[in-house]
Design a protein around this nucleic acid. Sequence first.
DNA 1: TCGATTTTTGTAATCGATTACATCTTTTTG
DNA 2: CAAAAAGATGTAATCGATTACAAAAATCGA
Lengths: 348, 348
Amino acid sequence: MSRQRWRTVKEIRIADVAQLAGVSTATVSRVLANPDQVRPKTHALVMEAVRRSGYTPNSTARNLRTRRTMTVLVVAPRLTNPVFAQVLRGVDDELTQNGYGIIVGNLDNRTEREARYVDLALSRQVDGVLLMNGRIPESGKRSMGESGLPMVAMCSAIPGGRVPNVTVQDRAASRKAVEYLAQLGHRKFGYISGVPGTFIEMERFTGFLEGIAAAGFGQEDFVRWEGPFMFSTGVSAAQSFLRLRERPTGIFAACDESAIGFIKTVTTAGVRVPDDVSVIGFDGIEFADYIEPTLTTFQQPLHEIGRAGARTLLRMIQGKMDPAEWDIQLPLRLLERGTTGPAPRPGG
Amino acid sequence: MSRQRWRTVKEIRIADVAQLAGVSTATVSRVLANPDQVRPKTHALVMEAVRRSGYTPNSTARNLRTRRTMTVLVVAPRLTNPVFAQVLRGVDDELTQNGYGIIVGNLDNRTEREARYVDLALSRQVDGVLLMNGRIPESGKRSMGESGLPMVAMCSAIPGGRVPNVTVQDRAASRKAVEYLAQLGHRKFGYISGVPGTFIEMERFTGFLEGIAAAGFGQEDFVRWEGPFMFSTGVSAAQSFLRLRERPTGIFAACDESAIGFIKTVTTAGVRVPDDVSVIGFDGIEFADYIEPTLTTFQQPLHEIGRAGARTLLRMIQGKMDPAEWDIQLPLRLLERGTTGPAPRPGG
DNA sequence: TCGATTTTTGTAATCGATTACATCTTTTTG
DNA sequence: CAAAAAGATGTAATCGATTACAAAAATCGA
């Protein structure tokens, strides 16, 4: 069994089909790519030969000649985060429908892993790149920015107008989150961030600050905990929270995973949600529906973000980008559910 | 801005590098692929030219000539299921380290979506296929089985010896699950299945039945609910559960998502876990750590499954498959946690 | 130093499609 | 019905690498 040859089935080439149909390879190629350039009779003849032989064009050869690969690289910060998995689904739907294949690049939250995908994408001549990591990937050798490749950012915008961005109204929603908590009577707040320095984090934090100001509060009225979009960030935020003498009662987490990690940790420590502390998340991942109580959060149209990003990229690839659609911002929906409630009576 | 040409950067070809270094293209190629076949002095010369020009080989051309694409197709039943996302991480780690790219195929639980990936994979000349969907994909045109392409199944085995399988001890664990519940005093059981007919489901159900028998029970002592590995399967199982006059007290779900969906639904209806009903899951996804109480479940080495599957596939591709490693079964670990407890007193 | 041997390099064929251009057929038009 | 126009098909160049084979250069031994 070892040292066995696997690719045993003989490949059928376009020349074989041509011979079978009694035409030239050019005609076969035309039948498959431009059916209207060929006589119906010939068309039928060739199609029959294709069917009989079970011919599938070798895209490797086609790619070389046409200088297109019908392949797109999708870079995700972390595939096990359901946000990105969900966006990827939308991307996949749109792209496979149009005959494109997807190469996934999973960074696992480590920026240094970008490099391998830059080289991969450039050497494989992908037709375009979808970025969910909030920056244009770099490798020591070559920058993806200089390559002239069509790129679109999703979820986390890349500011500077270099690429179209498909995002949600991060700032407005974050602001609304604080206002919502303030309306419920909360007077001291907590903010669980994303990765400091990323644009998406700046947007959400700015919105949070706006909300704080709009509700008449200031710098001294909130605590901020930092970390990437992961459960563990919520866990460490909660550990810090539990050590505080004067604990915030209204928490806004910039992602659902953090919110859930926070809730689990404080609940285990005997703090009740929402009686003692209210938590509001961001994302609307499916799992948020299954914790008890159900998470109050902003629902992103994740699947639609993926589709919109893919569609935008396809337009860029086809060279017919509509400038009016350079940036797309999709709406969010606040799901008012179980983890938020009236602020506890002070000293209650 | 519209109708703009994107690929503006001139591509550097091997001929350019050759000219720059004053050697032939053959030499450049050799420097990059077989450095020991070339004089150190020439090597340095060429490397300098490569560096100066920023040359990256065009893999499209290379693929055509070498008849390898260094690309693997990974078929997942549903990417938003963290089980598969996690396995994919392991696959990605192993493959990108070896210079392979990954094309993902997401079935979203719909078998008919297989077809597009069969065609995609065959026309793109992928070097191998990793299957997590428990069957060899088919399209009307051509079967992936007849292609002679190296394939490896992960998670859900494909019986019949056609492909190597990388799995866990599904049957033994399922059996142990029932025995564990029986030990806790449970006398009436529930089983939440996977997709009926799949091998993985048969394994887990067989194990469940073995456990039932081993504990001295029979057909009349359990209820079975069917559905794919999703939250919603657990939800509908719970709805059915709630309608029963005589409810089981020991539930085994063949996947964590179902378990979590079940728990959430019965909890909302006022049934207490684990006081009224014990639930034990299967998978050990990260979410399971964050529900309250923490889910009792079998932890799969998901990342390792991915790595092992990828390594096996690489060996097949290289034609040095060790028959002893045809099937790999990795161990599971029972995490005894919060959702299981002693059976409630009858009529309590 | 000279011929034999080994190592290094170059030339040109090759992978399998697409497509510009040429040629041959068919259709249209006056 | 002939000439012109339009349409269908074929021939061969092309994409950019790898690699078999040939040729050249370097090394070795006597």
